[in-house]
Simulated assay, not measured.
Amino acid sequence: MSRSGLILAGALVTFAGGIAPARAIETCFHMCLKGKLVSPNIDDQTIRDDMQACKARCDEEQKAQLESDGIAEKVAACVPEKLPDAEMKKVRSASPSIVAFANAFTWDVNNVLTDKIIRQVEITTQNLSLEDITMSAGGTVEPGQSGTFLIRYIADGYPSMRVTTRVKAIYACALEPGAASKPD
């Protein structure tokens, strides 16, 4: 196996939970994806497609949960607002580091905010011309829950891409008192 093949295999094992970081989360996304990353002939496009399929499945499960909680319409109608720096830092410090591989970005977010549903994350990275660009990912993470945000097709051709990508902002919707679902 080539050196790049070994590096990719190591990244996949780490991403799939084989070597779990101390603060790893077993999100719906990861439970779905780890069973798909077992083929010895897997390629980046297949990984991205599997990631998208898992994200879509988990989003549907989240939507069903919000409907069950009776807040789906309120969440769908809300216009997320950028979190103040103090709340953003609170969420970032409670969440593991971002993961970038197969030209995709994922971030497992722990929503430690008791009164807000996280709806979007915004990242800054560089394109292959080393210009800063901003990208965003949508999702829904209720208070006390964890969820994964995914952005596909982040250029990974330049070595510093992985270190220049950073979370720029988190957007959330305020909940009315008593509207939050209870953690499992």
Rank of each mutant, 00 (worst) to 15 (best):
M1I: 10
R3S: 09
S4M: 08
A11N: 11
T14E: 10
F15A: 12
F15W: 14
G18E: 04
I19S: 09
A22Q: 09
L33Q: 07
G35M: 01
G35E: 03
S39T: 09
P40N: 04
N41T: 12
N41D: 12
I42R: 07
D43Q: 09
Q45P: 00
Q45L: 14
Q45A: 14
T46G: 10
T46N: 07
I47Y: 05
Q52N: 12
K55T: 03
A56K: 15
R57I: 03
Q65L: 14
S68I: 00
S68T: 13
G70F: 02
G70S: 04
I71H: 04
V75H: 09
V75R: 11
A76N: 15
V79H: 14
V79E: 15
L83Q: 10
K90D: 11
V91T: 03
V91N: 06
R92N: 11
R92E: 15
A94K: 10
S95E: 09
S95A: 10
P96K: 03
S97Q: 13
I98W: 05
A100S: 11
A102D: 11
F105T: 00
T106S: 03
N111G: 02
T114V: 12
Q120I: 00
I123M: 04
T124E: 15
S129E: 13
I133W: 00
I133T: 08
S136N: 13
G138Y: 05
G139W: 00
E142N: 11
T148P: 09
T148S: 14
F149K: 08
R152P: 03
R152V: 02
D156C: 06
G157R: 10
P159F: 12
S160T: 14
R162W: 11
T164D: 12
T164S: 10
T165F: 01
A169E: 14
I170P: 06
L175W: 04
G178H: 01
A180D: 04
K182Q: 13
